[in-house]
Design a protein around this nucleic acid. Structure first.
Lengths: 142, 142
DNA sequence: AACTTACTGCAACAAGGTTGCGATTGTGAC
DNA sequence: GTCACAATCGCAACCTTGTTGCAGTAAGTT
């Protein structure tokens, strides 16, 4: 288990070596992503940042997330309706999203290996299973 | 192969027996859905309706699609970024969407049977494969 | 400490819908 | 037919989820 501080520093360092700058707003965004064990919308990240630093604009959060995504440190997933959800990219998984109650179940990528292989063989299609959610109904809502 | 006119009348009749009314705007929306062999956004439906009837408001198209969806005649699918795409619900299939060029490949529902069974057995999750697209890259864009 | 230029806050804009409302218009009953 | 009345409509305003242009600020380098 890696210390969360280590991951934080790693990302900030990567930002710098990429020619970027580490600002207090960016540090706060990365801190929230590192701390968060849930999926989190850009809006919620912005709210949390603003609890400490009220002047940070939402657009700064969006731009920071774009940069982190370009650097491969963050990914977002589309859950059907509603905003994109962000998380650190080491937390790779398939998302099962309940359309009834919104609950999310996370599964290892390997869950879709068979399907991915079949799609590649039969259709030349490279599945990107981290970028979308499998929608349906959980036990309680089915 | 059913005549398209039959499907049109069937849907309009269903609207009436549900206590709804068949207006010229609704007739036009259904006609476009019946004629269309592609997936089509609400905006494009509105544009096509307006070519014949310029005064029909986009909100009418959205409301009509909601009604048809409630009646089980229409479904929409989320393609990640971009608008929802609508189609008659008899055209059931899995959607493969290329994130590079936007091309869409359609597959029979049975393609996800194994996965659906596994999700049901292991997680009590009822997959609704018609409501989301599998995102990835096609041969040309991979 | 100065200098560059990446980054920021702000405001305006944009896509994709949704909603409230007063005006129309299908439909079933007569 | 035609009447009554609720379903539907057009319109405008609004909402959510971002994106963009710009002038000013500040990180990192020297």
């Amino acid at each position: 288990m890696r210390a969360t501080g280590e991951r934080l520093d790693e990302i900030l360092e990567l930002l710098r070596t990429d020619g970027g700058r580490v600002t207090s707003a960016r540090r706060a965004v990365v801190q929230i992503l590192v701390d968060s064990h849930d999926h989190i919308s850009a809006e919620e990240i912005a709210e949390r940042v603003q609890r400490q630093m009220p002047d940070v604009a939402p657009s700064t959060v969006y731009r920071t997330l774009d940069v982190l995504e370009r650097l491969g440190q963050v990914e977002h997933v589309h859950l059907g309706h509603g905003p994109s959800m962000y998380h650190l990219s080491e937390r790779v998984h398939v998302h099962l999203m309940c359309r009834g109650c919104g609950r999310m179940i996370e599964l290892p990528d390997s869950y879709l290996d068979d399907l991915a292989t079949r799609l590649a063989d039969e259709h030349g299609f490279v599945l990107e299973p981290r970028h979308f959610a499998l929608l349906g109904r959980c036990t309680d809502c089915a």
